[in-house]
Design a protein around this nucleic acid. Structure first.
Length: 252
DNA sequence: AAACTTATCAACCGCGAGAAG
DNA sequence: TCTTCTCGCGGTTGATAAGTT
């Protein structure tokens, strides 16, 4: 279901994420936040483009991301908001805590859109029509199961007011919005360590210039850089405007 | 059992908005 | 203003699981 790993012309990995990459990214962001997506993979030791890291974090690694099993309430919310907002997936996702725009978009295209077409007059969840594939039937079964699980699930307005406990909040997407407007002191970073990040030791503590140095300019930062390269050559890391990378990456 | 078809969803791509210089 | 850069969004792709013939 995932794309095979491959490498772009700059040597950056594309396709499916390995558990090791996931762990590196998760540990890095939970420890330091995502201060700059473009630069992040370099510091996190990932040969990925920032965009890919961002997507992976938001859609998969971020705490409190719910997966699968949409409740009826969530489904109704999606349908209703889609009627109101159209394909504003990110806006819809904001109303569904734990769901990502990508996931909602996928869900819409694979489940709801089809049903809307089959029964445009009715925005209710409809019974499985005869002749529908077995797989669809399984989906409905899963949906019904999830419906039971979430029998008391609130409407989207209630979902909207969903608030996380202080504990979950501290380990949730709030972290994902941490920017370097907020410059944590080293002891404050232990806050992340409290999350029980197994590989938090992967990253050495930065020196005091770490957060204000936009680019690697000397070897003292090499520990954050994988593969170790001259940062000045890294400038267009995630852009489409450099031919330097084949050589750079081939060094490692 | 094999070949073919369909559904799913993670991930990629391109573009636009907004911020900063 | 204009340019550059980063981020986020929405559309699309493609590998693979699941179903059908």
């Amino acid at each position: 279901m995932v794309r095979n790993p491959c490498y772009d012309k700059y040597g950056r990995k594309k396709g499916a994420w390995s558990p090791e990459e996931d762990e590196k990214l998760r540990a890095y962001i939970q420890r330091y936040g995502h201060w700059n997506w473009r630069e992040l993979p370099r510091f996190a030791g990932l040969s990925r483009c920032g965009k890919s890291c961002r997507l992976r974090w938001l859609n998969y690694l971020r705490p409190n991301v719910k997966r699968g099993n949409y409740s009826k309430a969530e489904e109704e919310t999606i349908k209703k908001l889609h009627e109101e907002l159209g394909n504003k997936w990110s806006a819809i996702a904001k109303k569904l805590p734990g769901r990502t725009d990508n996931e909602i978009k996928n869900y819409w295209h694979t489940h709801l859109k089809k049903r809307e077409r089959q029964n445009p007059a009715k925005s209710q969840v409809v019974q499985q029509p005869p002749g529908t594939s077995k797989r669809e039937g399984d989906d409905q079964k899963r949906e019904l199961e999830s419906e039971n699980i979430h029998a008391d699930a609130p409407s989207h307005y209630i979902l909207e007011s969903f608030s996380m406990s202080p504990e979950s909040e501290s380990s949730s997407s709030e972290i994902s919005t941490l920017s370097f407007d907020y410059t944590p002191a080293v002891n404050e970073m232990n806050w992340f360590a409290d999350e029980g990040i197994a590989s938090s030791e992967t990253f050495a503590e930065p020196n005091e210039n770490f957060w204000t140095e936009p680019f690697l300019t000397d070897d003292s930062y090499a520990q954050y850089c994988y593969p170790p390269i001259n940062a000045s050559l890294y400038d267009s890391y995630c852009g489409n405007d450099t031919d330097l990378f084949p050589d750079i990456w081939s060094i490692s």
